[in-house]
Design a protein around this nucleic acid. Structure first.
Length: 812
DNA sequence: GGACTAATCCCTA
DNA sequence: TAGGGATTAGTCC
């Protein structure tokens, strides 16, 4: 019988086969796959040899052993010649020995082409079935078995890489704990009296000291635990200051089974190790990475995670290269009078090996980089980025929806360093003409140095949401994200790289120049929004209330801003049909082209009036600058020129909360001066914001009594409102020199549209204006939508656009 | 000598 | 019986 790597010597003892007394048996493995029982016909020495099929049959080897070896070698050569690898070495020094038959070296390597093919299949399918393996083996002229081995080895290799990574993290944590432990021991050796500052007397154990002792025991346990785990990954014991492992261990739900090697099969030792996150408040950063048990599914998960980790590391590498390398990777160019850089694709391909496969056919590349100083420190920014909710709050107009699908690693030592998570996101440009970009991506955070952090995103094309197999992927994010470097003044320098590939045909021609210059989804927009939002946070954190009339309390300010935030979020969700609300698109014949009308039921939401809500949105081109358009729309005195709610007169600002240094960033409360008695209980809540990437004017009628509650610091969640408003962006024409999308060549079927794209007088510096209304058309949620309601909202939208055009003297 | 790689052996689900 | 873990051996740096 035989055990792994050992032979039974026939007398009950077990010896390694490379010390067998038969001399030549210690030669390179001669037990090749084609070895068969028929080779050994003579009786004699009993030797355990296992053929490839693993039958473990005992074969008798006779005196003509050498002769048989020749046969084996001949077979082996035959086997090698079938491997399809032509790069087999000619032979070793032994081949010159005339006493022995010429022998090729067993070793060879697959050709680079073969490896490339194998790698590419591995990326798609790390675990191919027999059919796939056979197919590949035929194609590559390899034995099916070789393909199988290759995949097996590659999986093992991935696992080893993962373990190595886990190991390094563990080691870091170990070092930290050890230092902590030492300092505590030190503190205990020379106790100091807290009252007098002198040395504490023996026998006097202060409360603090008792706590230190308890803490010390806990740390020692933790250290032991980490040492044991590190030992497992290192394959050798890691020394620790204490020796006992399990005596202090509390019970934990997670156990790690550790197989003992050596005489495999003779014994298996299972050691229970606590890995719980709840252990004494100290979490293991790897508890989420390591498979608790070794079942098939956990191994699959482990493999998937290791692939994610490999992808994340490659993406991080690429992000850092993209952020730190200038020419020739990024070529400086002047766009719209503003300095920017353009990605040199040849250099990019040379510098960055593809990490998520080839660009899908028909997709175009969008790559942008932007650097800016932001009033936030790197650590805080990283915390925000790694929290889906806070991330969405930071970029409310850009992120329609996001969630964390899985936290693969939570980070090391209580920080986000090493944190890796799988996320889902819906990115938006505020226009019905630009579809939402839905992406599943990995987000990986790494601290590169003291005060230097990087967060990278990269698409993973796996679709975990099997409930919706129809999901059409129209874009994917290549390694994108930011490198943040703390500056001494509390600011940080943020370098943002946004790299995506998308199906341009899904974007309306009017918006293609904007999108292709990166002003839609690109780095400029992320950085501009980040700067504006951080400035807003800094201002709001200032203690002095900054509303001009001083009529609002601090609590009221907070409530009003929260209400405004909800209003703006709902506005964005209505424009882009994000899945936050389940909108039904209307395709009625009387809906004007380029106006998207959607409807939904509002029930059980105290923040909205109950009933049927109709949303209508359209985007038009206007030959005026974005700034001029924004200033016009936010000016309460000019409101009567387009807003029916103003009752033909100017509006008056009753309250103003600044959200930024730019006066355009604020939340205000407006009242129509020409107010009729019937509407006397209504005010307008308005939020406006502007940055380098665009601007927004969002408003909603609100009840005076409800607003009084809010301004007094009451809960704003019960204020029912439906937002309307405008989103303004530059038309992109002045930004893109060689854009392939021209608004002039708009869809042929929209010649009668009101989007102004057929305006022959267009000039550089125009704007794209999105107008959107949400209106309650029936206060019964189950009521049917009438044609009249759709007509009303259609008229409202086209009238408003016409009025704006007239007021700005830009009618066709 | 260590890392990498192709292959082998044995065990287990 | 397929696949995984442990191991070996050839090669490269």
């Amino acid at each position: 019988m035989s055990f792994g790597g050992f032979f039974d010597n026939g007398s009950g003892g077990v010896i390694p086969y490379n010390s067998m007394p038969t001399g030549d048996i210690s030669q390179p493995r001669l037990v090749s796959p084609p070895l068969t029982k028929s080779m050994f016909s003579s009786p004699g020495l009993s030797l355990a040899l296992t053929n490839m099929e693993g039958n473990g049959e005992v074969i008798r080897i006779g005196e003509n052993f050498e002769q048989n070896l020749g046969g084996i070698r001949a077979r082996e050569d035959e086997y090698e010649s079938r491997s399809g690898s032509d790069n087999v070495d000619g032979g070793s020094g032994d081949d010159q020995d005339t006493d022995k038959p010429p022998r090729k070296k067993r070793y060879h390597r697959h050709t680079p082409q073969q490896i490339q093919e194998l790698e590419s299949l591995f990326k798609e399918v790390p675990h191919p079935d027999e059919k796939q393996r056979n197919e590949l083996s035929k194609r590559l002229n390899l034995e099916s078995r070789q393909v199988k081995f290759w995949f097996q080895n590659r999986r093992t290799q991935m696992k080893t890489q993962l373990e190595r990574h886990e190991n390094s993290i563990l080691r870091q944590e170990n070092d930290k704990l050890r230092a902590e432990n030492m300092s505590i021991r030190d503190a205990m050796r020379t106790p100091i009296c807290n009252n007098c500052g002198g040395p504490a007397m023996l026998g006097e154990i202060s409360l603090e000291e008792q706590q230190l002792r308890v803490e010390n025991v806990r740390l020692q346990d933790e250290l032991n635990r980490v040492c044991t785990l590190a030992g497992k990954f290192l394959g050798r014991p890691v020394s620790s200051l204490a020796t006992s492992i399990s005596s202090h261990m509390p019970n934990s739900g997670l156990e790690l089974a550790v197989g003992c090697n050596g005489l495999t099969g003779l014994s298996t030792v299972t050691t229970s190790l606590p890995l719980g996150n709840d252990y004494g408040g100290v979490s293991s950063p790897l508890s989420a990475v390591m498979p608790p048990t070794r079942s098939a599914s956990t191994v699959e998960r482990s493999l998937e995670r290791s692939m994610f980790l490999e992808l994340a590391l490659a993406a991080m590498d690429e992000l850092v290269k993209m952020a730190q390398t200038d020419e020739p990777l990024w070529i400086p160019s002047l766009v719209g009078g503003r300095e920017t850089s353009k990605l040199n694709l040849d250099e990019y391909r040379r510098l960055c090996p593809p990490c998520i496969g080839m660009k899908p056919i028909g997709f175009v590349t969008e790559a942008t980089r932007e650097t800016g100083t932001v009033i936030i420190n790197g650590l805080a920014l990283v915390e925000i980025l790694m929290d889906a909710n806070r991330w969405a709050e930071m970029f409310p107009c850009m992120i329609a929806r996001t969630s964390t699908a899985e936290v693969i690693s939570g980070g090391v030592g209580g920080t986000k360093n090493g944190a890796l998570q799988l996320m889902h996101g819906e990115l938006q440009v505020l226009s019905p003409l630009v579809p939402i970009r839905e992406v599943n991506f990995l987000r990986f955070c790494k601290q590169h140095a003291e005060g230097v952090w990087a967060v990278v995103d990269v698409s993973v094309d796996m679709n975990r949401d099997t409930s919706n197999p129809q999901t059409f992927v129209s874009s994917r994010r290549l390694p994108s994200g930011c490198v943040v470097q703390d500056m001494p003044n509390g600011y940080s320098k943020v370098t943002w790289v946004e790299h995506a590939e998308y199906d341009e045909s899904t974007v309306h021609r009017l918006y293609r120049p904007l999108i292709s210059t990166g002003m839609g989804f690109g780095a400029q927009r992320w950085v501009a929004t980040l700067q504006r939002q951080c400035q807003c946070l800094a201002i709001l954190m200032a203690t002095v209330p900054n509303d001009t009339n001083n009529v609002i309390t601090t609590g009221g300010r907070r409530s009003m801003l929260k209400l405004a935030q909800r209003m703006t979020d709902n506005f964005c969700a209505g424009v882009c049909a994000s899945t936050v609300h389940s909108w039904n698109k209307l395709c009625a014949g009387n809906v004007e082209e380029d106006v998207r009308v959607m409807t939904r039921k509002s029930v059980d939401d105290p923040g909205e009036p109950p009933g049927v809500v109709l949303s209508a949105a359209t985007s038009v081109w206007l030959p005026v600058s974005p700034q001029k358009l924004f200033d016009f729309l936010r000016d309460e005195r000019l409101r009567s020129e387009w807003d029916i709610l103003s009752n033909g007169g100017p509006m008056q600002e009753m309250a103003h909360i600044a959200k930024g240094q730019d006066h355009g960033n604020c939340v205000s409360l407006l009242r129509a001066s020409a107010m009729k008695t019937s509407q006397s209980s209504m005010l307008i809540l308005q939020e406006t914001c502007i940055d380098a990437s665009g601007s927004l004017v969002v408003y909603a009628p609100v009840d005076i009594p409800a607003m009084q509650v809010v301004m007094g610091g009451g809960d704003s969640a019960y204020v029912a409102l439906l937002p309307s408003g405008f989103a303004i962006v530059p038309d992109g024409q002045s930004l893109s020199s060689g854009s392939n999308g021209s608004p002039d060549s708009n869809n042929s079927n929209s010649s009668s549209s009101n989007n102004g794209s057929n305006n022959s007088s267009r000039r550089a510096g125009g704007s794209l204006l999105t107008v959107a209304f949400q209106i309650l058309v029936n206060n019964l949620p189950n009521a049917k939508l009438t044609v009249e309601s759709v007509d009303t909202v259609n008229n409202l939208i086209s009238c408003t656009v016409q009025k704006i055009k007239s007021a700005l003297h830009c009618e066709t």
